[in-house]
Nucleic acid binder design. Structure first.
Lengths: 219, 219
DNA sequence: CTGCTTCTGTATCGTCTGCTACAGAACGGT
DNA sequence: ACCGTTCTGTAGCAGACGATACAGAAGCAG
């Protein structure tokens, strides 16, 4: 019995004519277009021009506009997660502060459109397909859950009172992040965003006397 | 010398065939459409269907889609101002609290679309005319200035420290309002919005010892 | 009644949208 | 060399978009 053993590890070149553009680079351009114009506001002509390709190439490589957008948003989220590893901070408070400061910086970075692509996506695809809506909601819910878990960890470790309303605290900072994104799109400066962050951190819960005693004992 | 004296006070019926629809009512319908779909997301077909009229009637009464939208946003702002007279509160702190609570309620009122039309407008008209952008920016700046002035009054009256960064405080609450609008559109409950408000009010500046002494003396 | 004006409904206009049919080009396999 | 496969550019599809031309209807003035 002859069994043909394929070599799955070998990244063999695909058969037909090779693609003439860099898929990753094209996706990066598409992200910028969606970022600045939103989903519905970005036309195929905008996209193909920015990506340097023609419509058939776009459709062969990415499926359709909606699939391209989904890929763009997912990669955007990956990029943000990588460039902002706030989870590693020692305390929940430091983690939140780092997240806010890094986002304030990101939202006003002149090397790309202002604000947050995810926030743009939320509004500019409001009349679009249910699949797209679901994916965007899941992505946002995941980001929110990560923040909530980090704060919750602070409660478990005694940094925050046991009675802390973690969900409310999370919602508050998520709302602030969304608001900061809008202000940035409106042209707000990095300085003013950082001032908002400073103000928002004043809302961080003061530890109770018991918690302070515990923290002092741990130190 | 015979001078013809017109009677400008008399609301004489206009000459031609009378309009068959209520202009104000139609504008109210248009507001709802823009509110739920945004500027670019609302098509003329959507608008004429909701308003119960045909395109020529819309164009005769409102000019074009952009003019209709401008009128819609302006009337929306008037409505919100009227329904939320936060300026009358005794202290700046109470005024901000009332503003936030009323907006949290408004954004989750089921008798109309969720969130804030002005926030929708900011994003869904990003690729539109400069005139529209300018008008929207002015309207937002005016609302922001009213809030800032109320807080500034709190400083002048000694409720807040003289060194208070009024602009930063205003920016912070405006950002939170924008964020709350987005959360509401995402489906957040009134309860969670009110929890955000409560958290945000913890960021309100604590008066200095001198200010507290002054307040106690005044009472 | 006849003019004049203004609104209403039908039936489009030209443009832009997302998308694709098609023919040719560039590759690997045999 | 030849084939099958896959990509590329041109050129254009059907449909939705914002906006209008036009004819008739409904009011006033004379």
């Amino acid at each position: 019995m002859k069994t043909r053993v394929p070599r799955p590890a070998a990244p063999r070149r695909p058969r037909g004519r090779p693609r003439e553009f860099d898929r990753d680079r094209a996706l990066a351009r598409a992200i910028e277009v969606f970022w600045s114009k939103g989903y519905e506001g970005a036309s195929l002509a905008d996209l193909t021009r920015a990506m340097g390709i023609n419509p058939p190439s776009l459709y062969a490589a990415f499926g359709d506009k909606e699939s391209l957008f989904i890929e763009a948003v997912q990669r955007y989220h990956e990029n943000v997660r990588e460039s902002c590893p706030y989870q590693g901070e020692a305390t929940a408070r430091a983690a939140v502060e780092r997240l806010l400061v890094e986002l304030a910086t990101l939202f006003t970075d002149r090397s790309h459109p202002a604000g947050c692509l995810a926030v743009m996506a939320m509004i500019t695809s409001s009349t679009s397909s249910a699949r797209l809506q679901r994916m965007l909601a899941e992505e946002r819910a995941a980001a929110r859950a990560r923040l909530r878990e980090r704060i919750h960890l602070g409660v478990k470790e005694g940094e925050l009172d046991a009675g802390t309303d973690v969900a409310a605290l999370t919602d508050f900072y998520v709302a602030l992040i969304n608001g900061m994104s809008l202000q940035a799109r409106e042209g707000a400066s990095r300085k003013s965003l950082l001032a908002m962050v400073e103000t928002a951190l004043r809302a961080w819960p003061q530890p109770s006397r018991a918690a302070r005693r515990r923290a002092a004992a741990a130190a």
